[in-house]
């Protein structure tokens, strides 16, 4: 029962975005992913979700999924959020979150075309589930607002809610806490902890080292596409290479 990636390598022309990166997440654990801008963190997520095809293998719960399309991987329980929120700004927050239910729609196309009552009933059911997640992330008051009226931080929370309603077994969060105020940050941390407690394996990209090391069970530091440190959060944060990458060589003592 793991999501594991082995020796992922990606090149963009002359740029080695990832070089033989491996990682492993087990259900209930939170893996923090840190690294300076351009280190390849988002690229790693893109490999795990099949947006780009890397060299190397991705295995989820013992099944290799390297060749699967993005949507097939979602069906296998890998959900993600985007660093720059992606959604239809003209629809309501509730609608945007309910999009996350797509893999779990009970009715087929035909039933949807015929507008069977069962479609309406399950929509109602899904709506309630979505509202619960929206409240959990503190967006309850905005559920019926246009998504475009939210702040960037709130949009990131919305992305988290959307990923959560998909009922994933593995959740990839790309800088969800960026641009949040303190109260939202606490709420987000709670939501992440609860998700982990309910058995979801989480990979969390985050620049705020304090925030991420408090939350994670394990930390992985990426610099220029290579893993420079991994393990216990405190030891990773203090490791020479991480300090150098974040603060410059002068701070390494």
């Amino acid at each position: 029962m793991t999501l594991s990636a082995r020796d992922l390598s990606v090149r963009f022309g002359g740029l080695q975005a990832l070089a033989e990166v491996s990682l492993e997440v087990t259900p209930g654990r939170i893996l923090g992913l840190i690294g300076p801008n351009g280190a390849g963190k988002t690229t790693l997520f893109n490999c795990l979700t099949g947006v780009i095809q890397p060299k190397g293998t991705v295995v989820v719960d013992g099944v290799e999924i390297t060749q699967l399309r993005t949507d097939e991987r979602v069906r296998r329980g890998i959900s993600r959020t985007f660093q720059t929120p992606r959604l239809d700004m003209n629809r309501t927050v509730l609608d945007a979150v309910m999009l996350g239910y797509t893999p779990h729609l009970a009715q087929g196309r035909l039933a949807c075309f015929l507008g069977l009552p069962s479609v309406g009933r399950s929509e109602e059911h899904l709506r309630n589930g979505a509202i619960e997640k929206i409240r959990l992330l503190g967006l309850g008051g905005a559920a019926e607002d246009r998504a475009g009226s939210l702040s960037l931080g709130q949009l990131r929370l919305l992305e988290v809610a959307r990923a959560l309603v998909a009922g994933p077994r593995y959740l990839l969060l790309d800088e969800p806490a960026a641009g949040l105020d303190e109260s939202d940050r606490i709420r987000l941390a709670d939501a992440i902890k609860n998700a982990a407690a309910s058995g979801i394996g989480i990979v969390l990209i985050e620049h705020n080292v304090g925030f991420v090391s408090r939350l994670s069970h394990e930390l992985l530091a990426l610099v220029n596409g290579t893993v420079v440190a991994r393990g216990e959060p405190n030891s990773v944060v203090c490791s020479e290479k991480v300090v150098e990458a974040y603060l410059g060589p002068a701070y390494v003592h």
């Binding site: 993005t70 959900s79 992606r86 959604l87 999009l99 998909a166």
Partner: peptide
């Protein structure tokens, strides 16, 4: 946004 659709599980 096609990437959004794919990432939320639409074929």
């Amino acid at each position: 946004d096609r990437l959004l659709a794919e990432s939320t599980g639409t074929n």
